[in-house]
């Protein structure tokens, strides 16, 4: 069976033929199935943002191909536009792209562009607002009167309202307070479960991706260098540190414990760590 989304030998070079020529992606290949929650990590400038803009056809690869549902998204023009609705992309700091008079209208922008009828648009807007926790009252207010965290939710809802089969978010929690971060991550996961959608999330927070994703892609110097479960990836802590990447704090603590001669396994989430510690003391966790 062909994978849902397949990326083959992707290469992207910016500003070819000028002094600013820059290779952003080189020979990147992977495939994605429905319902996966994937984290993309990597240093600033490693090509993460360039990569995600290829997945919905915003950037055209200089070599290689992106295959969605068995069809190359660049094979015809209508298909490229269609794939923007199937693969929803939320940019960094999406709140700066709000423009409508009311929150409702802004969320409706995407579905309207899809050419849906008003009843369907209304249903989708309310559903998307529900996913991200925007109340009925807020739907009628101006997006510019909201707080930073709420604006972010509205912007994410604007993409969710298109009901994409793959939802890609570029650092959705950057610059938010811990509570909002957690809520937004939960909202995204709720969407994934409800729609059996794939979620890909670019993030710099290792503890977030360790906790919430099932698979990690690691980018370094425009190459895809690792692809595996968080456990597999964080087991290679040394390599990650060499790339200038972090590992979750709790993983670091446990590594240090091992170096000090204690017999502990590798863990990468706080709840796993708690379990290990309790079992070492011979107890168990009360749920």
């Amino acid at each position: 069976m062909t994978p849902f989304l397949q990326v083959k030998n992707l290469q992207h070079i910016y500003s070819t033929g000028t002094p600013f020529e820059h290779v952003a992606l080189e020979d990147v290949s992977f495939s994605v199935e429905r319902g996966e929650f994937i984290g993309i990590i990597g240093h600033t400038g490693s090509g993460k943002s360039t990569l995600v803009q290829h997945l919905n056809g915003l950037l055209k690869p200089t070599a290689g191909s992106v295959i969605l549902d068995g069809k190359d998204i660049w094979s015809d023009k209508a298909l490229t536009r269609q794939c923007r609705f199937k693969v929803g992309l939320v940019f960094q700091y999406p709140e700066y792209q709000l423009f409508e008079e009311t929150v409702y209208k802004d969320i409706a922008f995407g579905p309207k562009n899809m050419g849906l009828d008003n009843a369907e648009i209304d249903r989708r807007v309310r559903k998307a607002a529900g996913f991200v926790g925007i109340s009925e009252q807020q739907l009628e207010s101006s997006p510019f009167d909201l707080s930073g965290g709420q604006k972010r939710r509205v912007a994410i809802a604007g993409v969710i309202a298109m009901e994409p089969e793959i939802l890609i978010l570029d650092e959705p929690t950057a610059g938010l307070d811990p509570e909002s971060r957690e809520e937004i991550l939960q909202n995204i996961d709720a969407y994934r479960k409800a729609q059996n959608a794939t979620v890909m999330m670019v993030s710099h927070s290792m503890s977030d991706v360790a906790r919430i994703t099932q698979r990690l892609l690691v980018m370094n110097g425009s190459h895809l260098v690792m692809d595996g479960t968080p456990a597999e990836i964080f087991n290679r802590a040394q390599e990650l540190t060499d790339m200038g990447l972090d590992i979750p704090e709790v993983t670091r603590v446990f590594l240090r414990l091992r170096q000090m001669g204690m017999d502990v396994p590798n863990v990468y989430t706080v709840s796993d760590a708690a379990q290990v510690l309790f079992s070492m003391k011979g107890g168990r966790i009360d749920a």
Partner: peptide, 13 residues
């Protein structure tokens, strides 16, 4: 450029 991409991602033509 960024804003254009973002609105294109929402299907703007």
């Amino acid at each position: 450029d960024k804003i254009m991409s973002a609105q294109k991602a929402r299907g703007a033509d």
